[in-house]
Amino acid sequence: MSVTEMTETPLLTVEHLTMRFGGLVANNDVSFVARTGEITALIGPNGAGKTTLFNCVTGFYTPTVGRLSLRHPDGREFLLERMPGYRIAQSGVARTFQNIRLFGGMSVLENLIVAQHNKLMDASGFAIAGLFGLPTYAKAEKAALELAKYWLERVRLTEFADWEAGNLPYGAQRRLEIARAMCTEPVLLCLDEPAAGLNPRESGELAEILTFIRDARNPNGHRTGVLLIEHDMSVVMRISDHVVVLDYGRKISDGDPTSVKNDPAVIRAYLGEDEDAELPPEVAGDLPASVVHPAPKEI
């Protein structure tokens, strides 16, 4: 993919987003863009407002101020801040949560088919056709099954298809959540700490899945942009193309992983204020230069 194509397709545009809860400002004038073909990572210390921003994008919260627009590859545009949650989902945004929220009592395969509910509902005429097994519904269900199998294959859960989702091991549940989100055929996939609680091998597999989602065309021909919140810096630095850093609700840095990693504002947010920098000049003058102006630290 060429650079120009990347810059031409802003998928999600967040403009001047502010979210207040009474006196608490969780997000303060945050603007950024997430693109198709990129993994955009949202990072920041605890309480920086990352999850709040996610909740605004996916319709859990209505932002106090600001505009969230989602532009489909075919040019349709949706203003997410005005839509109820299920409509946002229908307009092509899928998300996962920090804690796993699978339908534990249903089978792995059923979890993936529920995600295609709308398509099936349209085909089944309020389940009537489904009850009598009419051909239109049978066809739609076959397609839904195909898509489910496609994503099962991708997240390597094919042999678990008939398991109850709640009985899967933790890492597999995480992968299933991503597969389920992808079964809604989203244009934007929002992942809230997908690597939380995964061991290094599992988070390696996760990184593979995410880069696959970024690069490959989905069975429906579309591509999916990825927006993720992540604390595991090794994952962020390895797979993301674009990093947005929040601190105390504000955006403090925005750019590619390397430049963000070396941004003094980011270092300050993560490692605290450099105390030596506060020293009065007469004291600082006596100290070696490396202490007064330390080299940027590795995060």
Binding site: F60, F103, M106, H117, T184
Partner: peptide, 14 residues
Amino acid sequence: RACEQDKKMAGLLG
């Protein structure tokens, strides 16, 4: 059945 288990998540899946 999905709504029975988690209405919010079901809503997010459309």
